[in-house]
């Protein structure tokens, strides 16, 4: 661990994200944030593996953010539902990054991305069966033990289902939460995309998730395509504003649970900072209104 990391590690670790709105940080927005502050944005999330580097401007920006805002470290490469546990080298790098940034939260995905020694750079689906459950739980427990903290597991956007599945997705996640004590990062865009793709009612599906374990919400935009039968096939694209039905699900979730740490993800076709900040403000207004209603 270098000096900056050691120093950051000495500070009191922030133990949770605020019940407010954050955005996925992009280096292209750094100058705007540095110059004028983050506006309605109360925290930032970064993809962990982008910061597995020794030095340079990326870590400089991250240190700057970490000194001013709560940070969520979001892994996209641990391949938790894959055939093998994440290698020690990967966990050591995660551990160092979490310490360096005094991260408020660490999250990963119910997905796999590596097999046969090849990294495929996508969050791939798995059957919800006993074998996946045992493997995933073992990997989640390994990560939580190595990092010494609770992991938040994110529900995936999926395009296919498996004949081998014996659990529904919400029940499967509830069982993972029960067995490992991990939290849930509920991605409402993923939930909506999967429900449309598999012909389920999003609101009914939402109520089946282990909502008591939700510690963060993700919102993002999706694209629309069509499957071979001419039915809608939504693609989790993160390259546009959040869709209206996803906003409606978000309002319903806030009604259930009250204000929650909420993140706007925008990874492709990046807008200027003010557009992203306005999207965050829309979510912040909903959180704020919900907080007021609860208080009165």
């Amino acid at each position: 661990m270098d000096q900056a990391a050691a120093k950051a590690g000495q500070g009191a670790p922030r133990c949770a994200l605020p019940a407010a709105v954050g955005v996925g940080f992009k280096p292209q927005h750094f100058a705007a944030i540095e110059a004028a502050g983050a506006g309605a944005v109360a925290f930032f999330e970064v993809h962990a593996e982008n910061y597995f580097v020794a030095g340079g401007p990326l870590l400089h920006q991250l240190d700057w953010l970490a000194a001013r805002y709560p940070l969520s470290i979001h892994g996209v490469g641990a391949s938790l539902a894959g055939p093998h546990p994440p290698p020690e080298e990967h966990l050591a790098a995660l551990s160092a990054l979490l310490a360096r940034t005094a991260a408020a939260s660490f999250s990963e995905h119910l997905a796999w991305s590596s097999a046969g020694g090849i990294f495929l750079d996508d969050l791939l689906a798995v059957p919800y069966d006993g074998a996946t459950l045992r493997r995933l739980c073992a990997h989640v427990e390994r990560v939580q033990e190595r990092l010494g903290r609770r992991l938040l597991l994110e529900n995936p956007a999926t395009y296919v289902e498996f004949s081998a599945s014996t659990w529904s997705e919400p029940e499967f996640l509830a069982e993972v939460v029960r067995r490992t004590g991990c939290g849930l990062l509920l991605d409402l865009n993923n939930l909506y995309v999967s429900c449309v793709n598999h012909h389920r009612d999003p609101l009914a599906e939402l109520e089946r998730f282990p909502l008591e374990a939700v510690a963060e919400v993700h919102l993002a935009g999706h694209a629309q395509d069509w499957d071979d039968a001419g039915d809608p096939l939504l693609i989790d694209s993160h390259d546009r504003p959040v869709a209206e039905p996803v906003w409606a699900l978000y309002a319903a979730l806030l009604d259930h649970l009250g204000p929650l740490p909420t993140l706007i993800e925008w990874d492709g076709d990046l807008p200027p900072w003010p557009v992203l900040e306005a999207e965050a403000r829309r979510a912040a207004d909903l959180v704020h209104r919900q907080g007021k209603e609860r208080a009165s």
Binding site: D121, E161, N197, D228, A229, D231
Partner: peptide, 26 residues
């Protein structure tokens, strides 16, 4: 093998979303 779609449509089109994601990202 083992992939399904609720409407019985050809899963090749759906699987292609993953294939496109992988190739595009890399």
């Amino acid at each position: 093998e083992g992939l399904t779609a609720w409407n019985g449509s050809n899963v090749a089109k759906r699987f292609a979303v993953y294939r496109n994601n992988v190739w595009h990202a890399l």
